[in-house]
């Protein structure tokens, strides 16, 4: 029986995904690591899987076939990379000999074996494993606003991680999730939606065998640092509230992420050391041939950037979807020609 693990990214996040895969390989050399890629390589990049830390690749265009262009056009980059997760999960659960499937966001790195989670899913009656953003209530108004109210708006469970057993319940969940994400994987918090994540608030209601992982060493991130103390012993163990750090979620690498980390990590060095390592590792895994902000599906065929407003227009109009099944095309009868003739919307230069 095999454990499959996948992540979902575009080439802009290849360096992060490599760091994740290498960290996974270190602790689980026998797992099959999949790269789910919603992108096409930029010119000049020779993407050779033989040199990558992934075992297999799943291309979105291979999964969704002819409908890929039209379907993806209704999504921004974050929505797109999360919308494919459900369908990918279904495919991996059907791999021969599959026992369990793990999903990890590309901006996660694994620091210790995930064996307790594997064992948790082997417990009879358990099929789905979730990690909440927070495990204990916060104290200050600031932390409550940042963390608890954030969870209420964006989803209780963090979908940087999910593990599913290849059984009937696991497959029923994957089918439901894939169906919802196909239509409603949107970043529209006011409408009650937040990509693939908010849907998962419903998992404990709809499915039996849901296990909520209460291991403080899992999915450590700025949204739970207020209640998790990271320490490093003289024996070299990295601990979170006294338990081994299993995986850290390096969300929002940059000034915003740094500010949120600093808000809750205080003056203890370990969290900053972990971040500094991650930044170095990502920097070392960078590929010069990938232009900054690259996303094949992010631009019209003439190179102009697709603004969210035009994506929303397309997403909300089935007539336009039918009329323009290849909406990134340019030219006389293209979707963008129609948009510019009939609306005030314009492609970004």
């Amino acid at each position: 029986m095999t454990i499959h693990v996948y992540t979902s990214f575009t080439f802009s996040y290849l360096s992060r995904a490599r760091v994740l895969a290498e960290s996974l390989r270190r602790h689980h050399p026998d797992w099959v690591i999949w790269a789910g890629i919603t992108d096409l390589p930029p010119e000049g990049l020779d993407f050779d899987m033989a040199g990558e830390p992934f075992d297999r690749v799943l291309w979105t265009h291979e999964i969704f076939g002819e409908t890929t262009e039209g379907w993806l056009f209704g999504h921004d980059i974050v929505e797109a990379c999360t919308a494919v997760k459900g369908r990918m999960l279904q495919l991996l659960l059907d791999e021969p000999g599959c026992e369990q499937v793990f999903y990890l966001d590309p901006d996660i790195a694994v620091f210790a074996p995930l064996d307790p989670m594997v064992e948790a899913l082997r417990t009879p009656g358990r099929s789905i494993l979730l990690t909440p953003h927070q495990l204990v209530p916060d104290d200050s108004d600031l932390a409550i606003r940042d963390n608890e109210i954030g969870s209420l708006g964006y989803g209780v469970f963090n979908l940087g991680f999910i593990a599913v057993r290849a059984d009937d319940t696991g497959r029923r969940f994957a089918a439901w999730w894939a169906a919802r994400l196909a239509k409603w994987c949107h970043d529209d918090v006011a409408a009650g939606l937040f990509t693939d994540q908010k849907w998962c608030n419903l998992i404990p209601c709809f499915f039996e065998g849901v296990h909520i992982c209460r291991d403080a060493g899992c999915n450590v991130a700025s949204w739970n640092l207020s209640q998790r103390k990271v320490t490093i012993t003289l024996s070299g163990d990295i601990l979170v509230n006294g338990t081994p750090l299993r995986f850290y979620h390096f969300t929002k690498m940059g000034p915003i992420g740094d500010a949120m980390t600093e808000r809750y990590a205080g003056s203890e060095t370990p969290v900053y050391e972990i971040w500094a390592w991650y930044k170095r590792a990502v920097s070392q895994a960078e590929v010069a041939a990938i232009p900054s902000g690259w996303w094949h599906y992010g631009r019209f065929e003439d190179g102009r950037r697709i603004p969210k407003s035009i994506r929303l227009l397309y997403r909300n109009r089935t007539d336009l979807q039918k009329a323009f099944p290849a909406p990134r095309a340019v030219g006389q009868d293209s979707f963008i020609a129609w948009v510019e003739a009939n609306t005030d919307l314009r492609a970004d230069p």
Partner: peptide, 22 residues
């Protein structure tokens, strides 16, 4: 000093601490 900051105790080279040290 791990990462030039904190005394580390020279743990095992395979330890988590060495994993995040420059």
């Amino acid at each position: 000093r791990r990462n030039d900051l904190v005394y580390c105790g020279a743990p095992s080279q395979n330890s988590g601490a060495c994993g995040i040290c420059v």
